[in-house]
Write a protein that binds this DNA or RNA. Structure first.
Length: 261
DNA sequence: TCCCTATTGATAGTAATGCA
DNA sequence: TGCATTACTATCAATAGGGA
């Protein structure tokens, strides 16, 4: 696997790049802020924050960034990108039909990996091939999952609900409040509750409970921790509460369930 | 006797909901 | 989006059974 370029770029001045003759490698680009015009399907399309672009070798590529100063939503444009080649990428790309453009919800994991990849490739020694390869593979797989889990339809509401789900998954193992979840995606608590219900059919706390129970089940099967420790690890505030929720969900107390497995 | 687990009742605080 | 009301969650405390 060979990484040609990988970095985070921020444009406060106009920027153009044209490879109409076709790319020589894979090019993935995630718009972080601002907007850019990119050649898609033969014409220039506006790409907004949260949108991911994936181009294989041979595909025409053209980008035109015109930062709009203080105008809201049209300030500096920022993105993560990488250009790479390699047999693993070829195999990954051919596994299924890849969209050229996808709107994804990132809770920080993708940008985190992308940032690490950029740092590693920036090293004077060129970076460790093993680390670069592992990071690039992890990044591609995370992008694949993000594309798969992206809302098939719906506007910003579906995307916000997805971000709320990601927040819950990341924070279910500790006590968190609706205010925190709502603040994480930048909306009010009331709107977060309504939006989540509308998009998923359930409540935020119900979803957190599902995540906690799933983790508790894995810990019960794969660890020697006591049930009290498992309740704590999984994010239940007390064993008493864990016991009650578990029994309501599975019909048997956690102890009996564990002995049965 | 101690530890782990199971169970229940009471209660405070928080989330969900509907409406303006 | 904020507010008021209702419903529910989460916690605490107490108690009991089983096994080492």
């Amino acid at each position: 696997m060979s990484i040609v370029l990988c970095d985070y770029s921020r444009h406060e001045q106009p920027f153009q790049q044209s490879m109409r003759g076709g790319l020589e490698c894979y090019l993935f680009r995630l718009q972080i802020e601002g907007q850019a015009s990119v050649l898609l399907g033969g014409r220039m399309e506006t790409v907004l924050p949260g949108e991911l672009l994936l181009f294989p070798p041979g595909e025409a590529y053209e980008i035109d960034i015109v930062p709009g100063g203080d105008e809201p939503g049209h300030g500096a444009s920022a993105d993560y990108y990488f250009m790479a080649t390699g047999s693993w990428l070829d195999r990954w790309w051919q596994q299924e039909a890849r969209p050229r453009r996808a709107r994804i919800a990132d809770d920080g994991k993708i940008q985190g990996i992308w940032h690490q990849l950029a740092l590693e490739s920036r090293r004077l020694d060129g970076g460790s091939p093993e680390i670069l390869s592992a990071l690039l593979q992890a990044l591609c797989l995370l992008l694949e999952r993000a594309i798969r889990e992206a809302p098939a339809k719906g506007g910003p509401g579906a995307l916000l609900a997805m971000k709320l789900k990601h927040f819950v998954e990341a924070h279910a193992t500790r006590a968190f409040t609706l205010d925190e979840a709502a603040a994480h995606v930048g909306i009010s608590k009331t709107r977060a509750v309504h939006l989540f219900k509308q998009e998923t059919g359930g409540s935020i706390m119900q979803y957190a409970q599902q995540v906690r129970l799933a983790l508790a089940l894995r810990l019960m099967a794969g660890s020697q921790l006591t049930l009290e420790q498992i309740a704590d690890e999984a994010g239940f505030g007390s064993y008493t509460y864990f016991h009650r929720v578990f029994r309501e969900k599975y019909g048997v107390p956690p102890g009996a369930y564990r002995r049965r497995e």
